[in-house]
Write a protein that binds this DNA or RNA. Structure first.
Length: 307
DNA sequence: AAGACGAAAGTGGTTGA
DNA sequence: TCAACAACTTTCGTCTT
């Protein structure tokens, strides 16, 4: 295990990095970002203990992975065939006792993890999420199980919550609707477990940036690259006049996209934009009104309408 | 007829006493 | 723990294109 040493926060660039060795966390004291909360190096170890003979750089094993139910490192105390190799009765007693305990402790958790991780992979591939997000989600789920947070909740909803959290942390946000569709869990339920799990585990997540949603929404609406980048500019301007705080990021992203589509003569209806963004037309309208008012875009929009 | 607009009432979550 | 609250949704009627 190798500690990763970071000098600067990748998020805000601050050098005020605090490492809490008890919890195994590294976090930035300026913005609160948890940089690495399990200080394990996942890269492979390339040492070879044989001198010159044999192929060099033999691996010592696969890198550990959170998506394997036992992280690829299984421990099992013997099978019954091992029993006959044991000598005394004492040894045999001990063997059975240990084996029994080992099975009792591990099966409950590990059986759960096995099923949960299969579900997690299914949902993750349905949403075409990157491997890194899947890993993160698996890690969050594992922690949740270890803390007994699954009790009283369905396994699927915790999986969905963990995935949602992982998406947010990796800045590839999916809406709760999409997550709901992929996992078959009510979006309310996902939101609830998401909040519960992140709070209980002390996972800090920054409010998501509306701009993160733009590329996906834009491609779903088949909008041009210019329209897309224009909407990002609009979001930038909106942020400066503080129109973004306190509002749902998807609503703002949708409105920016809508305005941008008007401005570039690629008009989409409010309904279409609302559908891909998972908000209602009303919300788009409200954001849209605020946008054109505060950013003095009214005249521009009027102009393109007449043409 | 479809889309845009806006009013009114309802929902679920946050906050502060 | 409860009430006030802000954001968002649902529903529905009206206006515009």
């Amino acid at each position: 295990m190798i500690r990763k040493s970071l000098k600067e926060c990748p998020e805000c660039g601050s050098s005020d990095i605090f490492r809490n060795t008890d919890k195994g966390e590294t976090l930035c004291r300026t913005c609160g970002l948890v940089i690495e909360d399990r200080m394990v190096d996942f890269s492979q170890e390339w040492r070879d203990f044989q001198d010159d003979s044999g192929p060099s750089k033999r691996r010592s094993g696969a890198p550990t992975s959170h998506t394997q139910f036992d992280q690829g490192l299984g421990t099992e105390i013997g099978s019954t065939s091992d029993f006959y190799k044991l000598g005394s009765d004492k040894d045999r007693d001990k063997f059975f006792r240990l084996r029994k305990w080992n099975i009792r402790i591990s099966t409950a958790i590990e059986r759960n993890l096995k099923v949960a991780l299969a579900e997690l992979k299914r949902v993750s591939s349905f949403l075409k999420l990157p491997k890194s997000v899947e890993e993160e989600a698996a890690r969050i789920y594992r922690l949740a199980v270890q803390k007994g947070l699954v009790r009283g909740r369905s396994m699927e909803s915790v999986v969905a919550g963990a995935l949602y959290a992982a998406c947010r942390r990796h800045e590839v946000p999916r809406t709760l609707d999409e997550m709901g569709e992929a996992s078959g869990i009510e979006k309310k339920e996902i939101g609830r477990t998401y909040r519960f799990v992140t709070r209980e585990l002390g996972i800090s997540i920054k409010p998501s940036n509306p701009a993160d949603y733009i590329p996906r929404f834009a491609s779903a609406l088949k909008l041009s690259a210019e329209t897309q980048s224009r909407s990002v500019e609009i979001l930038e301007m909106a942020r400066e006049v503080e129109l973004t705080s306190g509002r749902g990021p998807t609503g703002i992203a949708a409105a920016a996209l809508y305005v941008s589509s008007l401005l570039h003569g690629e008009k989409r209806t409010q309904r279409e934009v609302a559908d891909v963004a998972g908000v209602t037309e009303v919300t788009i309208r409200n954001r849209y009104k605020e946008l054109i008012k505060r950013l003095n875009l009214t005249k521009q929009v009027e102009k393109t309408k007449k043409k």
